[in-house]
Amino acid sequence: MGLNGKYALGILLTFVFLAAAMLFAFPLIYALTGVKTFTATNFFYTRIALWTVLLLIFLYQFLIEKEPFLLWKEKKYSVLFYIKAVIGLYLICAFGGAFLNFIIQVFTQENLSRKVVQIASLFRNNYPLMISICLTAGVVEELLMRGYIQPRIEKIYNSPYLGIFVSAALFGILHSTYGTVGQVVIPFFIGIVFAVFYKTYSNIKILIISHFMYDFVSMMIMNFIDIKHLSAF
């Protein structure tokens, strides 16, 4: 198998493993623990499943590809650049996501994701769980979707545009487990923004920090408002 074939297999495994973790982690944890309720502990175990996926892809890259996990060398920037980049990415994603959510609400009148409501009830005032959720999303999703998948798609097809689009599309599709149109469209939009930034500036650390910040601020908002008003965010 050539290097592009190994890249393609790695991308497929990444998507399949992530999808399996998102779809089947809870049933598996319910079976193993015997606790068949949506609890903070069980939800924490699902985050371990996502870290396991990251470990498996690291092993695949190390043992099969034998190439650097991050094909694009990390560029160094000043602390001021980090601050401006993180704030800029947050504002673009927050305002862009809010606008898309408004449009979706106008045309579909869809209800808030039941899964989001359940999760919001779990982490209310549970700050360690909030941090673990945001840290897992920031590190695992950025390393896999932008750091691993995007450059490999570009290498296979020799197209930066496909790298950006496919990585963002897979990012959106994986969020379809939340059960609403908004939970696909908005992550796809964020995936595009992050992928363009990564292609332009080649710094995964800024994306990890930005992803963490976006999720943490969103959770803090949900933590302090009534559940019936969550659709506004």
Rank of each mutant, 00 (worst) to 15 (best):
F99T: 09
F99E: 04
L100F: 13
N101P: 06
N101E: 10
N101L: 10
F102H: 15
I103N: 10
I104R: 06
Q105L: 14
Q105E: 13
Q105C: 11
Q105M: 13
V106M: 15
V106Q: 12
F107R: 05
F107W: 14
F107A: 10
T108A: 08
Q109R: 14
Q109T: 13
E110Q: 14
E110D: 09
E110H: 06
N111T: 11
L112W: 02
S113L: 04
S113A: 08
S113P: 08
R114T: 12
R114E: 15
K115L: 14
K115W: 07
K115T: 12
K115P: 11
V116S: 09
V116Y: 13
V117A: 13
V117M: 15
V117K: 13
V117T: 12
Q118E: 15
Q118P: 08
I119K: 05
I119D: 05
A120D: 12
S121V: 12
S121K: 15
S121Q: 15
L122N: 00
L122D: 00
L122G: 00
F123M: 05
F123L: 07
R124D: 11
R124E: 13
N125V: 08
P128V: 00
L129K: 01
L129R: 00
L129N: 01
L129A: 03
L129I: 02
M130T: 03
M130R: 01
I131F: 10
I131H: 02
S132C: 09
I133P: 02
I133S: 03
I133D: 03
C134V: 03
C134I: 08
C134G: 07
L135N: 12
L135A: 13
T136V: 07
T136C: 10
T136Y: 01
A137Q: 10
A137V: 13
G138I: 04
G138F: 02
V139N: 07
V139M: 07
V139W: 05
V139P: 04
V140N: 02
V140K: 05
V140C: 09
E141F: 02
E141N: 11
E141Y: 07
E142R: 11
E142C: 06
E142T: 12
E142F: 03
L143F: 15
L143T: 11
L143A: 10
L144A: 04
L144V: 01
L144R: 07
M145E: 09
R146C: 05
R146A: 08
G147S: 05
G147R: 01
Y148E: 03
Y148F: 15
I149Q: 02
I149P: 00
I149N: 01
I149K: 04
Q150R: 11
Q150A: 11
Q150I: 07
P151L: 00
P151E: 00
P151D: 00
P151Q: 00
P151C: 02
P151G: 00
I153S: 01
I153Q: 03
I153E: 00
I153C: 00
E154P: 04
K155T: 09
I156M: 08
I156P: 04
N158H: 11
N158W: 06
N158F: 07
N158E: 13
S159Q: 06
P160T: 10
P160G: 13
P160C: 09
P160E: 08
L162D: 03
L162W: 10
L162P: 02
I164R: 04
